[in-house]
């Protein structure tokens, strides 16, 4: 394995860690330098559209800052006065609705979100499920369950396999999202459908 290859794998680790897909171990943290961690945190924030004004450029910095100002969180009176101030401005008391939020996120954010769903879907179903004869796809390879090809020492072959898997994952994500969207018009379509049928029967 080349050096570059090793690094890439490490970063996958780190990315998974930030996305909450992997548990936090001292070992993993220790392996990474702070800059990479900060960058990944930022990417994650942007993808999830969580950083509207405050971009977190370096997570270690903000953690340190947060720790410094920790008492604020326990100071309930201050918090109350803040919310009261917001409420007083009138229009801002609808913060629960975020329709004023800019909707300029990257399309990739959605595919990432779907990716997560796919990951959950691939978890093996109960052993006694009646659908046992149905093959369950494993889109995110779990250690020890990946196909033998993945163990190939040939990087090219491995990459191709990986690319294909990603392609299929993307497609499944896209299909699920499309189904959700189409289902929204289903009810009104169906109503129009039955009404039209009733009309016909009348005539």
């Amino acid at each position: 394995m080349t050096k570059a290859h090793v690094n890439k794998l490490d970063n996958q680790h780190l990315s998974a860690l930030l996305d909450g897909e992997q548990s936090l171990t001292d070992e993993v943290i220790a392996q990474q330098d702070a800059a990479t961690l900060g960058r990944y945190a930022l990417i994650g924030d942007v993808m999830r559209a969580e950083s509207e004004d405050a971009f977190v450029f370096d997570i270690s910095d903000s953690v340190a800052k947060a720790l410094e100002s920790e008492p604020v969180y326990a100071d309930f009176t201050q918090k109350e006065s803040q919310t009261a101030a917001i409420a007083a401005t009138g229009t801002d008391n609808v913060v629960a609705f975020n329709w004023r939020k800019p909707v300029a996120q990257l399309a990739i954010a959605a595919s990432v979100a779907m990716f997560a769903i796919v990951g959950i879907q691939t978890l093996p179903q109960g052993e006694n499920s009646p659908n046992n004869e149905i093959p369950m796809l494993q889109t995110t390879p779990v250690t020890g369950m990946a196909s033998p090809v993945s163990y190939s020492s040939e990087p090219a072959l491995q990459n191709a396999e990986q690319g294909l898997r990603e392609l299929q994952q993307q497609r499944i994500g896209a299909l699920v999202l499309e189904h959700q969207r189409q289902a929204r018009v289903a009810y009104s379509l169906e109503k129009a459908h039955t009404e039209a049928q009733a009309e016909e029967e009348k005539n």
């Binding site: 879907q121 796809l137 294909l164 392609l167």
Partner: peptide, 13 residues
């Protein structure tokens, strides 16, 4: 179809 041999199968959530 996507390239390559891919098995048919189900996913559920």
């Amino acid at each position: 179809p996507l390239p390559g041999r891919r098995p048919s199968g189900a996913l559920s959530s």
